[in-house]
Structure formats: structure tokens, C-alpha cells
């Protein structure tokens, strides 16, 4: 019985740690953990890999096939590679009062 309880406690702890790591909420340090080079896919690393956001969240107006992320890079993507998102798209979430870290519109400390 004791061994069973110990196993359950350890398993629960492992699942919790794995969940935090998967969502990236604890470990998200853009710039330090992720390269900020466009060539390295900085925004994809942060928003798609880290935050698990759908492509359309930033690339609004672009239609993606359900299997888009598993397509070969040589396959016809149907025009779903719109390039770098206009920074105005960032404003939707990153303004003061938005759902993401408020880079815009908040008060800066001196």
C-alpha cells in the first residue's frame, strides 16, 4: 500500500512538471531561451511551439489545411505562407489590457 501511494505521488509530480514544461508558461523566456532571429523562426518558437497557438491567430485571413504542419516543405501549401506578420497583428494581444504580455500602451518605469 505504501509503495502504491509513493508511486502515485511521484507520478502526479512528474505529470505536473511535464505539463508546465509543455505549456511553457514557467519556462518562457523569449530572447534568452529562443533565438530572436527571424531566420530561426523566433515568433513560431514562442507562439506556435511554446504557446500552442493556431496559425490563424497571427496569420489572420489565411486558410490552412488541417494537415498543414505535417506537409512536406516541398508540397504545395495553397498559398498559406504569408510571410512575416504585420506588427499591427501583435497589438491585438500585446496591448495594455490584452491577453498577452502588455508591450504596448502601458506605463513604463523609469
Amino acid at each position: 500500500m505504501t509503495r502504491m501511494l509513493t508511486f502515485l505521488v511521484v507520478a502526479a509530480a512528474a505529470i505536473t512538471i511535464a505539463a508546465c514544461d509543455t505549456t511553457g508558461e514557467q519556462a518562457m523566456v523569449p530572447g534568452a531561451k529562443y533565438s530572436m532571429n527571424v531566420e530561426d523562426g523566433r515568433f513560431h518558437n514562442i507562439h506556435a511551439t511554446g504557446q500552442k497557438l493556431a496559425c490563424e491567430t497571427c496569420h489572420a485571413g489565411t486558410e490552412y489545411q488541417p494537415d498543414f504542419v505535417t506537409l512536406s516543405k516541398y508540397a504545395d501549401d495553397g498559398g498559406a505562407s504569408p510571410g512575416i506578420v504585420d506588427r499591427a497583428a501583435c497589438l491585438g494581444c500585446h496591448k495594455a489590457g490584452g491577453i498577452a504580455t502588455a508591450w504596448y500602451g502601458g506605463r513604463a518605469t523609469r
Binding site: V29, P30, G31, A32, W103, Y104, G106, A108
Partner: peptide, 13 residues
């Protein structure tokens, strides 16, 4: 800017 986003992210980093 009076509220520079560059400073905000630099401080957060």
C-alpha cells in the same frame, strides 16, 4: 517614446 516597449521587454528580459 514616453512608454517605450523596447524598455519594457528589455527589463522583462
Amino acid at each position: 517614446c514616453e512608454d517605450p516597449p523596447c524598455k519594457k521587454v528589455c527589463d522583462d528580459m
